[in-house]
Design a protein around this nucleic acid. Structure first.
Lengths: 331, 331
DNA sequence: TTGAAAGCGCTAACAT
DNA sequence: ATGTTAGCGCTTTCAA
């Protein structure tokens, strides 16, 4: 940095202030400094900066590795978080989910200035650990008790409710909900339940016949689920599916059963955007806006790092996008 | 650190040497220091250490975000890399695939001591950039010209060859290969081709009739592929599938066509372990040992960071695991 | 086997 | 609007 200062004919601190923007610098001076920086190919040393400023310019990101996580969605979050962090000139350090001691160590050593925790469970053991840390944290997911915590999550209730409303507006009157397999429902995570509740509440409010079932991601399971539903609802004409993995099998099951989509049966999926789009018959869907959620999580975390004491819970909604699997009832 | 030194009645440098192990310390001294460290809850400052030692104790990891990547496998690599790095007391910083400037900046600022590049393409534009950096890099994947580079990859040829040998040992004599969809084949990545070649070479060496096709991940496509193959090979009795996404549809297609697995048709999948295991009829498979590859990549990178000048290419093989989809021909 | 002390390359308070 | 300078908390050479 002193080379740059010399080349630009200014003091060391001026270079520093040009870099940080924490002081107003006259245009010509800034110009000479920036020119010198480029000419010398100068790049500030991260360690020195961290030492002097007590800021690592780095966020810790806890990613889940459990076998039943949807890594496609996880990676979308990760990408969004990295991009958003970069906009603040921050880097992202990987922390593994299981490892509560990891975040403690990195926070204590000053390697990270804040923590983003994905895949938060109802009673997540990491939450008390996080609370004891010297750095702020933002949760992606909604624990049971979110008192005083900063949380962001997808609004699953809104999603399935929106799906129901869409089916209603198309004239559908016997609708069913196909949710995650039991495995996921019995997990310590509450979004599956929130999704189901949005559907049920919506159906009750609309005063239509409805039923809810679970489904494993296999052709046989899909056919069985479909049969069950049609047994309960002989005139089934609408379906909301919150089960990404079962989607293709469900479609195949309908085709095999001679059910025409969207005419006879209209289906709304709650699933990642790319999956909805990639299908041979693209799904009308409400998609998790992972990008947006990741960006908001980083924004919240940055605000807390800058000192804002804003614990808050934010549920992010998403619009329904009509594609090929829904259509109005034909008279 | 000086607090620790005082509490232990030693000098500051002794504490440092206890921490780094770069000097022999007498047992009682070490003991007092370690006790003091624990009592004071001391944790060394990463920035200061990086500044003084010119080591960030951090690896950069470039993860791919293209829509056609298998994020499950990616996450396995990521997890293995983080775990392996931790064994060296190293952290992992996320770099996005697209961003060649990212690795330049992080390397120049001393934020990372080495780079792990996933999903390397035939003529990857990042390779020349990496070569110009001040830090070493290890590629996961095999570019066209790997001269002077450190690379690790799964041995796809060995995998499909092993699959063929297994089918041969079971008495199968008309075998087919189902590979990735065209989309992936036309990509700038060569593993799909290596997988196909392993199959073809193996079949030729064994002197049996064989055919190779591609397949999209849909039921219709799977049924079409199966029909094509049976047209060419009327007595088809063995299948090697290197197409994870199409696997469930292929199985459904066989069932619908009245083909019994494994008796009439034995199938070997080249796919991630968890997918092979999770199927209702678990696949006999050769699996990408993502854990092992990730670990080896980190080992190689650490060796180069420590100064070893060992550019080398390593292909990691994997054993075939027999499950429910292969069995001997019945006389 | 241990200690003393000179940096590592920045930031930010204090000057001017 | 810019300059001076005292650290930030370690590592490592040089000495003992």
């Amino acid at each position: 940095m002193s080379d740059v200062a010399e080349a630009a004919g200014v003091s060391l601190s001026t270079v520093s202030y040009v870099l940080s923007g924490k002081r107003t610098i006259s245009a010509p001076t800034r110009d000479r400094v920036e020119r010198a920086i480029r000419k010398l190919g100068f790049s500030p040393n991260a360690g020195a900066r961290a030492l002097a400023s007590r800021r690592a310019q780095t966020l810790g990101l806890m990613v889940p590795f459990s076998p039943d996580t949807d890594f496609g969605v996880v990676m979308q979050f990760v990408g969004a978080a990295v991009t958003a962090a970069r906009a603040y000139d921050y880097n992202v350090l990987l922390l593994t989910h299981e490892d509560g001691s990891g975040m403690q160590r990195e926070a204590a050593s000053g390697s990270i200035d804040g923590i983003l925790m994905m895949d938060v469970e109802n009673d997540d053991p990491r939450i008390p650990i996080l609370a004891g840390l010297s750095v702020p944290g933002v949760l992606i997911g909604l624990p049971n008790d979110s008192q005083g915590l900063s949380c962001v999550d997808f609004d699953f209730m809104q999603a399935t409710r929106t799906a129901v409303n869409h089916l209603m507006s198309l004239g559908r009157r016997q609708i069913a909900f196909i949710g995650s397999p039991e495995q996921a429902l019995t997990r310590r995570v509450n979004y599956a339940e929130r999704a189901r509740r949005g559907f049920t509440d919506g159906a009750i409010d609309a005063g239509v016949r409805h039923v809810e079932v679970a489904c494993d991601p296999e052709l046989d399971a899909a056919e069985a689920a479909l049969a069950d539903i049609r047994h309960a609802l002989p005139h089934l004409d609408g379906l909301v599916v919150h089960n990404e993995a079962a989607l293709p099998f469900l479609h195949a099951a309908c085709v095999r059963a001679g059910i025409s989509i969207p005419k006879q049966l209209s289906i709304v999926a709650v699933c990642p955007e790319n999956i909805a789009q990639a299908a041979a018959q693209p799904w009308t869907s409400v998609s998790i806006p992972a990008d947006q959620i990741g960006r908001i999580a980083v924004d919240m975390l940055m605000a807390r790092i800058e000192g804002a004491p804003l614990p808050e819970q934010r549920l992010i909604g998403s619009p329904l996008v009509q594609r090929a699997t829904t259509a109005p009832v034909e008279s």
